[in-house]
């Protein structure tokens, strides 16, 4: 095993180009577990800790460009306004110690369906900024997850950042685990209202081979909100609409039975989370809208 310690992003890209099998390690919260438990013996470890750029975020035209290694602890502390869904998701990650080390880049690189950030990124509508010595490309989050623990990165690419639209409406995130802290998701659900485009987006974790959106549910709800004039009148969404949205979210799951939970439970729980998060976000939207005098 070789340990590569690039001092700059350019050096890191060069190293990855030279050694495409090199495993990037930043927070170490996935890679080191695999090494400690003898599940993995990569030829090269590519340490990203010395690359300061990865630990910073900046505002870019209505989006946040979030460095891949910004620890979850900082996201939940500093980006609650801009990225509320991701901030909530960050707070559910493992433990304080893990949140101090892990960042979104690790979740994306590992691409486990149980990664906590995925549903929030899907719901907010993110782009993954992948870079190699060949150049930079922005991969829409919808195209990023390609299979169980597989993603759209080329072997020579590294994740530089994610670009996430600043929230234009309420966002929520819920995760089910069988413990009240420090738990891997049995399933998770992210929901973002986008009043500017009058759309809603969702993200589901741990309930399919990859993180997924519940597109049928999104389309249904967007149409229902339009039809009812609810974006404008700010009325309470009728229970039947909420229920159908929840049912469609549950139907978007393609879960398995495993030691963490049954497929049936996951489908059921995603439905409950969809219903609750819709209620919370819509209540919040109505509250904000009323304050702004937008609602009749």
């Amino acid at each position: 095993m070789d340990f590569l310690r690039p001092a700059s992003w350019e050096e890191a890209l060069a190293a990855k180009a030279e050694h495409p099998t090199a495993v990037p390690i930043a927070g170490g919260t996935d890679v080191m577990v695999e090494i400690n438990f003898d599940h993995r013996r990569p030829e090269y470890l590519l340490d990203l800790n010395r690359i300061g750029d990865l630990y910073e975020w900046e505002a870019v035209e209505g989006s946040v460009r979030l460095g891949a290694s910004v620890p979850y602890a900082r996201i939940m502390e500093h980006l609650r306004t801009e990225l509320p869904g991701l901030a909530l998701a960050s707070h559910t990650v493992a433990s304080p110690q893990i949140r101090n080390r892990g960042g979104v880049g690790g979740n994306l690189g590992t691409a486990s369906p149980a990664g906590d950030a995925h549903p929030a990124l899907l719901a907010a509508g993110a782009e993954v900024e992948a870079e190699s010595v060949r150049g930079t490309r922005l991969i829409p989050i919808d195209d990023f997850y390609t299979g169980v623990k597989r993603n759209a990165l080329a072997p020579d690419e590294l994740i530089r950042a994610v670009r996430v639209h600043k929230a234009d409406g309420p966002q929520q995130y819920s995760k089910v685990g069988t413990r009240n802290a420090m738990v891997i998701a049995v399933c998770a659900f992210g929901l973002a209202l986008h009043p500017e485009t009058r759309t809603v987006r969702t993200g589901i974790g741990s309930a399919a081979p990859t993180p997924v959106r519940a597109r049928t549910a999104e389309d249904f709800l967007s149409a229902a909100l339009d039809e009812g004039g609810w974006w404008d009148n700010g009325k309470v969404i009728t229970p039947s609409v909420v229920k159908q949205f929840a049912d469609l979210c549950a139907a978007a799951c393609n879960p398995i039975d495993d030691v963490r939970g049954t497929a049936g439970y996951r489908r059921h729980a995603v439905g409950v989370l969809a219903r609750r998060t819709l209620t919370w976000t819509w209540d919040s939207y109505r509250g904000t809208a009323q304050q702004k005098g937008m609602v009749a």
């Binding site: 707070h91 995130y173 819920s174 995760k175 685990g177 009240n180 802290a181 609750r276 919370w280």
Partner: peptide, 16 residues
């Protein structure tokens, strides 16, 4: 939420 079932995972604000 730390006082509720689900804790930090933000699954309930009292519902259910």
């Amino acid at each position: 939420v730390r006082q509720l079932p689900g804790g930090l995972s933000n699954t309930s604000h009292g519902e259910g």
